[in-house]
Every structure is written in C-alpha cells, then in structure tokens.
Computed example of a mutant assay.
Amino acid sequence: MFSYNDLKVIDVVARLGSFSGAAKEIHKVPSAISYTVRLMEERLSVNLFVRLHREVKLTTAGIYFVEQARDLLKQMDNIRLQTQRVANGWTKNVSIALDNVVRESRVSKMVGDFYRAFPDVELHLSMEVFNGVWDALADGRVDIAIGATTAIPVGGSFARRDMGSLAWKFVVSKNHALANIEHKLSVDQLIEYPAICLEDTSRTLPKRVTWLMDNQRRIMVPNWYSALQCLRDALGICLVPSHIAIPFIQSGELVEKQLQQPPQLSPCCLAWNTETISPAMQWILDYLGDGQQLHQEWLC
C-alpha cells in the first residue's frame, strides 16, 4: 500500500513540520512532497496533517500513523541489512558440540571472545558423549564439534583437525575395596565391581562405551559430574580423562590404580561441516588454533 519512500516523506514532514523543509532535506521540490502526502491521505481516507500558513501539524490520526510508519521503516532497514549480510556469508548463529571429555573451563573464554568479535551472532553450545558428537554433525544440529573421535563414523562434507590424544586414568574412591591393593589390577579383580559408564548421546549412530568388561554390571550416567559422584561414593569403577581425574587424585578423594591392561590413548579431533562455513564459523576455527593449541587448551 505504501512504499519505503512514501513512509520516509511522511516521517520527514512530521519531524520538520513543513513541506518546504522536507523537500530541502530529501532533495525534491515542495510540490512533490505535497503531492505524496495528499496521495497517502486519499488512500487512507484521513487527514494526516493540518495545513497552516507556513507549517503543518499532525492530526491525531497522523500521530498514530507516523509512529507505525517509523516502526515499519526500521523493520525495512533491518530486512535490507540482514539480507546483505546473508549474501556476504553472515549467519544468525553458530552451533558447537563439545564432547564430554573436553576441558569445560575453556568454554567461557571462547564465548566471551566470540561475542566481542561478533556482537550480532549467537553461539549455541551443546554437550555430547562419544558418537553423539558425530551424530549432531551428521544431522546438521551443529556446525563444529570439539573433541570428536578421529574415527569418523559418518560420510559427508566434514573436515577435521587433530587434537592429539586423550589420556585416561583408572581411579577409585579412597574408600573403595580396591584402593589399598598395591599390585596391578587384573580383569578378574575388576569385574566384581560395577563399571560407571557415560550414556552415548547418539540418536541414530551406534552407541559406544569406552571401557567395559564382558558380563560386568554397569551404572549408566549422563556426564562426568555424575560419574565422579558415583566414584567418590565408592559405587563403581571407571576410567576418567586425566585432566578431570588429577584434581581429585591430588585432593585425596580418588586413588589412581594401575591395571595389568593399561588404557589406550584416545585420539581426538576438531571437526566441522564444510558446507556451512561462514565468517563467524571461520573465526572460531582460526581461534581454536592448530593441533598443539587444541590439545593444550581442551584435553590437558
């Protein structure tokens, strides 16, 4: 019903209070301004302005219309801006999946630095376990995954960057029956106690378990916080990422024990969807750095 220019004319006339003043600012002749206002009043079947000798004043209906017109102008300006941003690779948000093994203390600094660099882009974070990271990538729920296993279980347009290997420690509560045994623990000794296992968050990919012996009972938990609670209460046994276990070993709450079959290192990687690259996403990939930086900041 009204063009952007029509609304702009009404806005300027209302602000300056005269056709001649509006004509000067918009670089048109006063008669063109007067004609636009009269045409809009005819379309609305109301008078927007009271014409005085050298000025115009808004009617009650005019005051309402100008308020609405200014809101519309802001919306139209915003649509134009956002459309240009999309054309230049701008995205509304970037989604990141964090594997439950990574160092969570690093997250807040990354978020703060990102929001300073991109004040108009949202960062969406989720926590996944094992194959849940790749499941989120394959399903398009996230753009980037930090701490994914290097064995890629899905096909698609994904790239990765090595993060080095995650080390594990076998720990038990200081009050657990295994805490005072000095020799390396055998499978027969371990199988007597429930294994504390994190539930794989994968929705479609096969679920994985990092450490479990044949016919051993399980305690399934959602995250390492719950696993540590069970460990400290001597409810079960499990392998824990070294960087998570060390503070509890140092405090004496948990005791590290040696196994006859030592745990293997777990190679990890940074992975991302190459089809959703945007300036904000590229900034994150550059910010996270090379493999050495990733290992030091997220797995140690």
Rank of each mutant, 00 (worst) to 15 (best):
M1I: 08
S3G: 14
Y4F: 12
N5R: 00
D6R: 01
L7M: 11
L7S: 10
V9S: 03
I10T: 07
I10R: 02
V12F: 01
G17F: 11
S18C: 10
S20C: 08
S20E: 10
G21I: 07
A22T: 01
A22R: 04
I26G: 06
P30E: 14
P30H: 09
T36E: 08
V37A: 08
V37G: 07
R38I: 00
L39W: 04
E41V: 01
L48M: 14
L52K: 13
V56H: 14
K57H: 12
L58I: 06
A61R: 00
F65H: 04
E67A: 00
R70I: 04
L72N: 05
K74I: 15
K74V: 14
M76D: 02
D77L: 02
Q82D: 00
T83M: 12
I96G: 08
A97P: 09
L98C: 12
S105K: 13
V111C: 07
R116Y: 13
D120N: 08
D120H: 02
V121S: 00
H124E: 12
L125A: 06
M127K: 12
E128R: 12
G140F: 03
R141I: 06
A145G: 11
A148P: 12
A148K: 08
T149W: 10
A151D: 15
A151L: 15
G156A: 06
S157M: 04
R160H: 07
R160D: 03
M163F: 13
A167R: 12
W168F: 15
K169E: 03
V172K: 01
S173M: 07
N175E: 10
H176K: 06
L178Q: 06
K184E: 15
K184H: 13
K184T: 07
L185I: 15
V187R: 09
Y193S: 02
I196E: 09
E199S: 11
D200V: 04
D200R: 04
T201W: 03
R203I: 02
I219R: 10
S226D: 15
A227Y: 06
Q229D: 14
L231W: 05
R232L: 05
D233V: 05
D233M: 10
A234T: 01
P241I: 15
I244H: 05
F248P: 00
S251C: 09
E253Y: 03
E256Q: 13
E256V: 00
Q261W: 08
Q261E: 14
P262D: 07
P262A: 15
S266Y: 02
C269R: 06
E275K: 08
T276H: 10
T276M: 01
A280Y: 09
Q282A: 12
W283H: 01
I284R: 02
Y287M: 02
G289T: 09
Q292D: 14
Q293N: 09
Q293P: 00
C300V: 11
